[in-house]
Structure formats: C-alpha cells, structure tokens
Design a protein around this nucleic acid. Structure first.
Lengths: 256, 256
DNA sequence: GTTCCGGATTGATTGAAGTCAAGTTGACGC
DNA sequence: GCGTCAACTTGACTTCAATCAATCCGGAAC
C-alpha cells in the first residue's frame, strides 16, 4: 500500500496498491529510504545504492520466496504484500518465525551461515526489492551511513527475534501481538486501532506457540469483555489500555 | 580459562585462569582474534583494533556489568568467567536471556536502541574486554574484514536469539541446552561430554522458561534413564545420542 | 564437630493450554 | 439455490508443567 497519498487518505483500501519508487526515489516505505536519507546520503550515494536494487515479484499467495538452506546472497525488502518466515520441526509441524509487512527487511539472519535459516513464503500478492548483500557490504565500505544503517537493522533484528521469549499466558501473548502489529501498521500511516490481521489464525497461533483453538478462545474472551471487536480478519481495538496492560507482562516489547 | 596451554592439558581446572593477550596478540578466545585473523588482517590493522580495546574487571559474582537502559557505547567480549543477561518483567520475575562464556560477545543488541536492552551480571569472577562500538565502526570503515566480522557476529546473534522459540517439552529444551553448552565449551578445547554447568538451576530454568522444580525433575529423569550423570553442577553425557534425539525437536539448533 | 542458610530436590495438587472431535461459517463454483 | 471445501469455532477431556509446601542437602562460619 502506498504512502504517497497518505496525507490524502489513510484508508489502505483507497490508496494505490503499490509505490514502486523510481530512479530518483526509494519506495517510500523502504528501510533504506527511511533510515539512510536523514543521515545525509548524497545523491550520488543514493544512486549507487539504487543500482544494486532489483525489483522482484509479484509472488502469489503461497508462493515460496526462498527455502531453508538455499545459499544466501541477498536480503529482501517488502514493497507490497505480506511474507511469513518459518521452519519445520522434526515432527513436520510448522513454526512461524515472523511476518513481514511493507518496509521491512528479510534475510539478515542468513549472513552468518551463508544460507537462509528458514523458509519464506508470500501470504498475499507480494512485491519485493532484492539487495545483493555482497554488493551492499562493498558499498557500505565507502558510505558510513549505509554501514551504520546495516548495523542498526541487524541489531534491531536481534531484539525482534527475542520477542515473546519467556513464559506468558495466551492472552498476554496475543495482546502483545495485536499491539505490535498495530504499531507496525501505524508506522506506515495506517490506523493502529482498526486494522486487518491478514494472516491465518493458524499462522498467528504458530507464531505465538499456541494451538489455533487457543487463539480462537482468546479472541472470543477479548470480544466478550469488549476489549476488541473481531469480524473475520478485521480488528478494532476498543480498549487499547487493557491490551497494553496485558502485554506489559512481556518485557522488551518497545522495539521501536 | 586459557587456550594457550590447550595442547598441554584440556582440563580446565589445571589450566592457567586467564589469557590476557598482549600488545601483539588477542586473547586466544577472542571473537576478533578468531574471526578476523584467518581473513588476513594486516599487522597494522590488528594493532589499530588493539588500541581501542580496554580490559575491564575483574567483576565479582553478582556484580553488575551494565543495566537495562544504560546508554550504549561499547560491546564486551568475555575474557574469563561467566556472564548472564536478563530482564525483569512487570511482576518482578527475572527472565534470563543468555549466558556468555569466554570468547563470546555481549551487547550487539544495544546498537539499535542506543541503550542496553537488558541487564548483565557476572556469575563468576569475570574479566572482559571493552570495545567502543563507535570506534570499531569507524575502523570497520577502513577494514573490510572487520566490517564483515561485525556483520557475521550480528547475524549470528539473530539466530541465537531465536533459540528455543517454539513449544517444546521441558525435556527437549533441557537436552538442547546441555548440547549447546557442551558445544560452546568444545569450541574452547574442553570436553563436550564432561563439563560444568556453572550457573544456578534457577537461572537455567529461567532461560528455558521453566520452573526450577521442573528442571530438577528433568535432571532426575535423565539420571534415572542413564542418559547423563549429574553431580552437583558437574555433568557427564552418557548417551549424547539420546539427548540429540530429544533436542532434534527444536529446529535451528545448529547455530555453528 | 555443630549451626545456619540458600539452593536444590521431592511430593501433592492445581490449572492453563493442548488434543480430539464435532460443528459452524463464509467463499466460490456450478 | 445447493454442494463443497477450508478456515475457523466450540465443547469435552487430557496432560504437562506451575504452584505450593515440605524437606534435604552442602558449604561457610564458628
């Protein structure tokens, strides 16, 4: 969803579907656009960074972007759509590791092993930017701002990976998930109060290490208590304070 | 514990307590010594990296190294001893995030927020090397090998943070913990079969998100089944294969 | 040695969430 | 409209680990 028209309308359903960027501009949601520019990248630097970007996609829902153990060469920035990463345990059960919404970067955890440590599939029609990591590292050698940006992004991913570590109740985890998702959408100009949970209940359950049935029951409980309204995959947070209180059990939630 | 004498004796209790390094050499366990050198750092480069190292400590057991929300300026490499990092949740319960043994690096997750996101305390008499991160980043601008090393270390921490994510039984988690700990000691030349678990049961429990009583019961079960022998904090893995089978439920364990 | 103390263990009970099985709902196609 | 299918929900039951409550060490001090 585009940010170009965010000042005209914050309704995702009325915004143009994609902001592709062009030779002069990054996609408005792009981490490199957002993070680098305020640090004073020169026009030349931006152009050189641009040269190593490759637009890929569209990927259809269910389509694989990379597989676990594929050799690593690039990270991906989500331009539009939704991606989940996951691993399969020895009993064949899927463990979802993360969801990625436009502006977020996938694959920094693959640098060390030189292979992707997880699978990535599109959950919605998805467009990506592909950044060759080697080329980026080379460029970072000349551009302190880019090096700094990469350090920041990787550091942030360490904290993000820690999310939900610990022993929390189903309600606390789900409350945290709702608030986190809302906050990430808010960064792109959408409402943090009324939004869509575009992934399947099963995937939310797996991400939170819960059974789908438990997620269902938590949703019913929050509905009954008037904390949030759920209609299919639409959510309206009626008492964000109550959610925040629940989620406050989980430390380190302030990832931003 | 020193690696200098590893060829003479692999017994940690007979080895000299500390390998300090000097003007010419890194501590033998140091991540920068280990990771950078094979990539062909020049003598000059090594010297410059050396200049920004500051030896700190000793810290006594229980002594704080940094506190959550302290402004970030440096990462720490463990030279000797043992460190745990942890956060306190809103009910006052401690959640252990990690244990750090000599050669391991603490604090890369603090780069993004510019504050330490957790507390760090020594669990044993501990010596550290302090690296100013800003100075290191500057140096990395000139030394591609150092930049690469930092990317690798941060990427590795992302995977490490993911450890234990998912819904596993107490036995699976503990088996994974034992094997992981053994493997880390083995990297320093010690036995991966017979070793010490120098942290309190309570800390292991917290790290694994279990009650201390549950850890105790798992230990008893593994003893009864002859899978491992426990004597106080000493462990001998009698059937590592059984442990591996248990731990294989947890994906992504192969962090190395 | 004896006393003390904190960490560790053990046993009895409880409870939150998983599992299994049976509905329900909505989307799509014919 | 009706059938089909998958996702989701609901209810009944089970289970694993947390909690509560006693002990049981083992080391330090005297």
């Amino acid at each position: 969803m585009s940010q170009l028209h965010a000042s005209d309308s914050r309704d995702p359903w009325q915004a143009p579907p994609v902001d592709d960027g062009d030779a002069e501009r990054f996609c408005s949601t792009c981490v490199f656009g957002r993070v680098c520019m305020p640090q004073g990248f020169s026009k030349d630097a931006l152009n050189r960074l641009h040269c190593l970007i490759e637009h890929v996609g569209p990927f259809q829902p269910g389509q694989t972007i990379f597989r676990i153990n594929d050799p690593f060469s690039a990270v991906f920035s989500v331009r539009a759509g939704l991606v989940k990463t996951f691993v399969i345990d020895d009993k064949g059960r899927e463990q979802v590791l993360g969801f990625y919404t436009p502006g977020e970067l996938i694959g920094l955890d693959a640098v060390y092993p030189s292979r992707y440590p997880c699978n990535a599939v599109a959950l919605d029609t998805t467009l990506l930017c592909r950044f060759s990591f080697g080329a980026m590292a080379n460029l970072a050698q000349e551009l302190p701002g880019l090096q700094q940006t990469l350090f920041l992004l990787m550091s942030k991913d360490i904290s993000a990976a820690l999310w939900g570590k610990g022993d929390y109740s189903a309600e606390e985890k789900f409350a945290g998930f709702l608030l986190d998702w809302g906050r990430r959408l808010a960064r792109r100009g959408f409402s943090a109060r009324t939004f869509n949970l575009p992934m399947a209940r099963t995937d939310i359950a797996s991400f939170l290490s819960l059974a789908p049935e438990t997620v269902s029951r938590v949703i019913r409980k929050l509905s009954d208590e008037g904390v949030a309204r759920f209609d299919r995959r639409e959510v309206e947070l009626l008492k964000p304070e109550t959610l925040r209180k629940l989620a406050s059990a989980i430390p380190n939630l302030g990832l931003d």
